[in-house]
């Protein structure tokens, strides 16, 4: 049997590499804009679930700063979206805030009004046990909706605990660690907001991590 030169095989392999990368590059070009739009819309949907669209008139997706407060907010980087109406500061949305659950990180999105009250909390992703800890997901139970309108005065800051720890928030049967983690993360976010309120609203824009910079 005739031996084929080795370089032929290598060249053929290289050729297929080029063809494959071309295919991927073309698909990427064809879908990049749509994917960026999807991601933008997904963020907007999350924000509008917490803040009614008529409570703001600015382009929140481009009125953002990125803060790094791993001790308070849990994440290495948190994007802060700012809502303003007629130039007045209305609210900020923190995404993500990371709470420690039973099964690792729980990613939260938290909206805080300018007066320090909560507009709402939602779970972006989690890996809590189905049927037990996953009741923090609003599709499974309305527990997380109970945060609306709460603030550091309501209940008082020392009551920001689950009931088992002597606080005001319900835990779930068979799952205390999950709600304990979420309550703690929300409380710390409120404290962080209280301490940095003016700086958060005043800071100049930085592009959000989730935004690819494409304008609609």
């Amino acid at each position: 049997m005739m031996r084929h030169p080795m370089w032929l095989g290598a060249a053929l392999l290289g050729l297929f590499g080029i063809i494959g990368s071309t295919l991927v590059a073309l698909t990427y070009q064809g879908t990049a804009e749509r994917i960026a739009r999807n991601e933008r819309e997904a963020v907007l949907r999350q924000i509008h679930a917490l803040l009614p669209p008529d409570s703001m008139d600015n382009d929140m997706l481009h009125d953002t700063i990125v803060v790094s407060a791993p001790d308070e907010l849990g994440a290495a980087q948190t994007t802060v979206y700012r809502a303003r109406l007629h130039g007045r500061d209305m609210a900020v949305v923190f995404s993500p805030v990371i709470a420690q659950g039973y099964n690792g990180a729980i990613k939260l999105i938290i909206a805080v009004r300018a007066d320090g009250s909560l507009a709402g909390v939602r779970v972006l992703s989690h890996r809590e046990t189905p049927g037990l800890g996953d009741k923090i997901d609003e599709r499974k139970s309305d527990w997380v909706l109970g945060f609306s309108d709460k603030s550091l005065d309501n209940p008082p800051v020392e009551r920001w605990l689950v009931k088992r720890d002597g606080g005001d928030f319900d835990q779930f049967t068979g799952a205390t660690i999950t709600p304990r983690g979420v309550v703690k993360a929300v409380k710390q976010t409120l404290i962080y907001f209280q301490q940095h309120r003016d700086a958060l609203f005043a800071a100049t824009n930085a592009p959000a991590a989730t935004d690819n910079g494409e304008r609609p």
Binding site: G20, L23, V24, T27, Y28, T31, R34, I35, N38
Partner: peptide
């Protein structure tokens, strides 16, 4: 190579649609 290229393309398309 072929399979990986197709999978990546399908992944991008699913992300888009």
């Amino acid at each position: 190579l072929i399979i990986a290229s197709f999978v990546t393309a399908v992944e991008l398309m699913m992300n888009a649609w």
